[in-house]
Simulated assay, not measured.
Amino acid sequence: MGLKANGCDFRKFVNYEDSDDLYLYEVGRNKCTPLYSYEHLVKNRIIIHIIKKGKGILRINNKQYDIHKDQIFLIPENYRCFYQADKDDPWEYIWFIIGGPKIPLMLKEAGLTPEHPVYTPVSDSRVITELALDTLKNYKRQYYCIGNLYRICDYMIENSSRKEEITVSNSLRYVKNAISYIQLKYSEPVKIEQVASALGLNRSYLTRLFKDATGYSLQEYLLTYRMKMAVKLLSDKSLSVAEIAKNVGYNDTFTFSKAFKRHYGKAPSDYRSVEIKVSTGTITNV
Rank of each mutant, 00 (worst) to 15 (best):
R272E: 11
I47F: 04
Y221K: 03
L136Q: 09
E115G: 00
N62G: 05
K102P: 01
R45L: 12
W95F: 15
N44G: 04
D88H: 03
L41W: 13
N15V: 02
P117F: 01
H116I: 05
R208S: 13
R162H: 03
L74M: 07
Y93G: 06
R80L: 08
L234I: 08
A245I: 02
L107W: 03
A178H: 03
F256R: 01
I166Q: 06
I146Q: 06
F254T: 13
M106H: 14
H116Q: 05
R226Q: 13
Y221A: 02
R141E: 15
E243S: 12
G265E: 04
N170C: 00
I182V: 14
N30T: 11
R173S: 00
H49R: 10
I75P: 00
Y271V: 09
D252V: 03
G215M: 09
Y65R: 07
L222S: 08
K43S: 09
M1K: 10
N61S: 10
H40F: 12
R208T: 13
I276M: 08
R173I: 06
T113G: 02
S238K: 09
K55Y: 03
F73Y: 07
D20I: 01
A267W: 13
D154E: 11
K87T: 07
D236Q: 05
K228Q: 14
H68F: 03
K108S: 11
S279D: 11
T284A: 07
K52Q: 14
E26D: 08
E26T: 12
S123P: 00
Y225T: 12
K232R: 12
F10M: 04
G100S: 12
I179W: 04
E164C: 01
I146E: 07
L206T: 04
T135I: 09
S240A: 07
Y83E: 01
K191G: 07
K163M: 09
P114L: 07
Y221I: 03
N159C: 00
K31N: 15
K87M: 10
P76G: 02
E275R: 07
V231N: 10
G99V: 05
V14N: 06
G2N: 08
R173N: 10
E39R: 12
P34Q: 09
I98W: 01
S180Y: 07
G2I: 06
P34F: 08
K87P: 00
I67S: 02
K4L: 05
G265I: 09
Y25E: 05
K63D: 08
I146M: 05
T135W: 03
K31E: 12
D252A: 03
I57W: 00
I283V: 15
S169C: 00
R59K: 15
Y65I: 06
A245D: 08
S273V: 02
E164R: 11
G2W: 12
N62P: 06
S123G: 04
L222A: 11
T33R: 13
K185V: 04
C145A: 14
